[in-house]
Simulated assay, not measured.
Amino acid sequence: MSRYPGFKLLIVDDHAHNLFTLRTLIHKHMDVAILEATSGHAAIDLTLEHPDIDLIILDVQMPGMDGFQTASLLKLRKRSRDIPIIFVTAAFKSEEFQQRGYAVGAVDYLLKPIEDNQLLNKISTYFRLIEKERNLNRELERQVAERTAELDRAHQSLANIIRYMGEALLVLTPEGTIKMVNPAACEMLQYPESDLLGMNIGDVFEEEADEQAGAFMGIWLEALIRTGALKQIAARFIAQDGRRVPILFSRTAIKDPGGQITDIICIAKNMTGYTRIDDAPTAPPARPVAQ
């Protein structure tokens, strides 16, 4: 017989010799902690004092508050409602009374005189079920902790990528309000992060043609809704001191399952020092060769 160390059992009977007999039998075969109560009221008080009780063996026929009433009250209380109860009785042997026991929350019903092995097997069965459930819960907690650690590592890795990437990253609301920036964007624009957050992208960005700059959010949204992304364009950031910083700029829309834009991701590469091909000087026309 397994000994089940760490389990706690409450036995309830108004006869002291019955408690002694049960305690002696159980301790002989199981290494469990046993609490004893001689009334329903005492049993309820013990469940409040010991929220870690695993199983209750409850005599039905007790003066004052009987086993049915005791079980009903135990099932009403949050601390004790999930504790399995095994009813034992010598008087209530009809099926009607047994059904009443199950109705008030009993998981089993034993008739006196109880055969020792039958009682021990019942107790052992419920302890094994409880142990299995606890093992499953521990495994689930381990898996959750492991997954949480993986997500934390992934989050930290992504945060490092965003923090150390050379391009400026700005995340906008669909209305064009800046809601997130990385250090490269702050450095490129010469704004502290706290100042950039809440600004409109139009305050720090302009496209090369004035007519485009005046209504670029409308153009963006129409194109982003249609395609989800816009290819890189040549544009300029407006730094805090008014300098125009040439950039290569791209925009991508993040959509919800309904197709509505939730965020706009903007990435800008500083093109200072780069020469555009169409700005390069053209070679003079070749002279005709003398005949």
Results as ranks from 00 to 15, higher is better:
Met1Asn: 04
Met1Tyr: 10
Ser2Leu: 12
Ser2Pro: 12
Lys8Leu: 10
Leu10Thr: 09
His15Gln: 12
Leu19Ile: 14
Thr24Ala: 04
Ile34Gly: 01
Thr38Phe: 01
Ser39Phe: 03
Ser39Tyr: 06
Asp45Glu: 14
Leu46Ala: 11
His50Leu: 02
Leu55Gln: 07
Leu58Asp: 04
Pro63Ala: 14
Gly67Leu: 05
Leu74Gly: 15
Pro84Gln: 15
Ile86Gln: 01
Thr89Glu: 06
Ala90Phe: 07
Phe92Ala: 04
Phe92Asn: 13
Lys93Ser: 05
Lys93Met: 03
Glu95Thr: 15
Glu95Gln: 00
Gln98Arg: 15
Gly101Leu: 00
Ala103Lys: 12
Ala106Thr: 05
Ala106Asn: 04
Pro113Phe: 06
Leu120Tyr: 11
Asn121Asp: 07
Thr125Ser: 05
Ala145Leu: 02
Arg153Gln: 15
Ile161His: 01
Met165Tyr: 02
Glu167Val: 07
Glu167Phe: 01
Val171Leu: 00
Leu172Cys: 02
Glu175Ser: 03
Ala185Arg: 07
Tyr191His: 02
Ser194Glu: 13
Gly198Tyr: 09
Phe205Thr: 13
Asp210Thr: 11
Glu211Ile: 13
Gly214Glu: 09
Phe216Ala: 08
Leu224Glu: 09
Arg226Asn: 05
Arg226Ala: 14
Gly228Trp: 08
Ala229Asp: 04
Lys231Gln: 04
Gln232Ala: 14
Ala234Met: 12
Ala234Glu: 15
Ala235Thr: 05
Arg243Leu: 03
Ser250Phe: 08
Thr252Leu: 07
Thr262Val: 12
Asp263Cys: 05
Ala268Phe: 03
Tyr274His: 07
Thr275Asp: 11
Arg276Val: 11
Ile277Ser: 04
Arg287Leu: 13
Gln291Ile: 00
